[in-house]
Design a protein around this nucleic acid. Structure first.
Lengths: 343, 343
DNA sequence: CTGAAAGCGCTAACAG
DNA sequence: CTGTTAGCGCTTTCAG
């Protein structure tokens, strides 16, 4: 019984041993050619390459991972993957990982309570990834995640302040910019459609909104609380439309702004004639709403690159979580949904 | 030199051997407890579980994968991951995989020529995944992908007709429904904003649009060709607005419809008063455009489930690619952007 | 420059 | 019910 016949086993691909046999050399010689680490005589190399070609050899990553304890993959942990922020960040993360020859493994934890997050994360611990990128840990209990101290981790958009290195945007500053833009246009004050209270970015944006108004001595009307969805934006829009004092609204994200604008429109309000609207995120469809939406744009590609850079930097470190936070800038994009009040 | 001291090695996690040592049993006993396959005496099991707990043991998947030639992961191959279709499908795929205890590894091939796709796919061949889901193989040369006959593959939304099993929607029927909806409202004919010509779904939707008109003996105006982006929709909208005969437009996807509607609006056209618009895909923001967009909705969660089901079914098969195609139904969703012509 | 040996962590097969 | 042995495919020693 030959050890590894062409079709004896299940359906494993050709191994280094198969190549070695065909090329008439030893296994390590094949390995040397494969890794390119040590020198090999050109003739031998050619023989090996030929054999690899004929067999369609490609190295078995599981074996490699087992050997050197690294997986060549980083985990991307999020609650959902179908929202704009997640999708854009993930796309950017993937590109950045590819550049470094890492792959991306998706992990989801639909709930952020430790009851769900921890197993999901633990499962990864010694399993398939060399590091974890955690996205938007909103919702759930206060202290969701406890990963081993040696696991490289970076968190985006979360409340993990002080526990794990983070890549964040300056949410407060972004909110400020939105509010100041509207005040500069001449609005007396700026009403606010907030994100869910259990979300850290939402919380920070609220603080920024309030601070900007307070700093200029303006009244701070009671915000309406949404949940990031356009549905909740629609509800808020109907409420705001009933209040004739409202001339400017800042929405904590673009998708709520979409719903809000539709509700205002349905209530017969002109945007920006009667009411100005500013969003947050810079989703691509925001350029094509009616009217096009003024917003605070996040640089998602940059966020993705930073996330990857920060995880990779931790690999092999003794105290991986000590790398400094990174802050990615935001940009005010002025479109047609904001204008001076009609007066 | 003790074999595996607490902190001697790099930073591998505790192994089965470590647990065995601590629990005072053999490695396989630990393995038995871990897999739950064979019977173990309650006392022994308790000892083992305790040791696992203390050490924070979790099985090393690389080793497991090496042993039994399976990886517990399926690959998701696409050109981009930041578009609605990809994001929604991926989210669904991930959920379906979790239910089956598989993880998802992302793969991207930015170009669809074999020069890029094949290496990307080959790299996976014996590496990290047990199967591959290929998404939207639009663009590129005619014969992009050649995977080994034993690799489970399923293709979504692609021209792989006859080569690999597919999960598709009935694009032609969907387009028909959109056109018939508009004709039923009383429009003489339906103008068309098509997707890129190198996309198979776009091609099929065009055929469906044309067939629906022809079947009712209506004129088939020259379509305008877009590229799926709202930008291209805007350009088309400007062109259509200049043609006073246009009363109804079918857009090959929702995002182009957004751009188109903005352009119509900018040109002073009322939707649906002057021109009715119907999209395709059913993206969530379509409910909140101004006006809300009538569309052909794809059931992305269902598509994701089918994709996973069809890959998993192939695993272990001798002729994996012989599983039958799956067709996921589409649904007409009528909103405010379509109405009878003014007349 | 090339070959032989050993072991990463796991589990199937075979004893006991 | 439990222990021993062996080997998955790879690469890092160490010898030639």
């Amino acid at each position: 019984m030959a050890s590894t016949g062409a079709r004896g086993g299940r359906k494993r691909g050709p191994s280094i041993a198969d190549v070695a046999r065909l090329a008439g050399v030893s296994a390590q010689t094949v390995s040397r050619v494969s890794t390119g680490a040590e020198a090999v005589k050109p003739e031998t190399r050619a023989k090996v390459l030929l054999a690899m070609e004929q067999l369609g050899y490609s190295p078995n990553r599981a074996a490699r991972a087992l050997r050197d304890g690294r997986y060549g993959s980083i985990g991307f942990l999020a609650r959902r993957f179908d929202r704009t922020g997640e999708a854009l960040t993930m796309d950017a993360v993937l590109r950045a990982c590819e550049a470094e020859d890492y792959s991306v493994t998706l992990l989801s934890a639909h709930d952020t309570t430790s009851a769900e997050w921890e197993p999901a994360a633990r499962r990864l611990q010694n399993q398939t990834v060399d590091g974890i990128i955690i996205m938007r840990a909103e919702g759930g209990a206060g202290d969701p995640l406890a990963l081993p101290a040696t696991m490289p981790v970076v968190v985006s958009d979360s409340r993990a302040h002080g526990r794990y290195p983070r890549v964040t945007t300056d949410e407060m500053l972004g909110a400020r910019r939105a509010v100041e833009h509207l005040l500069d246009l001449g609005h007396e004050t700026v009403h606010y459609l907030a994100g869910p209270e259990d979300s850290e970015p939402a919380r920070l944006r609220t603080i920024g909104w309030r601070a900007a108004l307070t700093d200029r001595g303006r009244a701070t009307p009671e915000p309406i609380w949404g949940d990031w969805t356009p549905q909740s934006g629609y509800a808020a829009g109907s409420a705001f439309a009933a209040d004739p004092t409202v001339t400017a609204i800042f929405c904590a994200n673009d998708e709520m702004a979409f719903g809000l604008m539709l509700a205002l429109h349905a209530a017969g309000k002109d945007i920006p004639g009667d009411i100005s609207v500013v969003g947050f995120d810079g989703i691509s469809l925001g350029r094509y709403s009616v009217p096009p939406l003024t917003t605070i744009r996040q640089d998602f590609p940059q966020i993705g690159r930073e996330l990857v850079r920060m995880v990779l930097r931790q690999i092999g470190q003794t105290h991986p979580h000590s790398v400094p936070d990174s802050i990615v800038p935001l940009e005010l994009v002025v479109r047609d949904s904001s204008a001076p009040p009609r007066r």
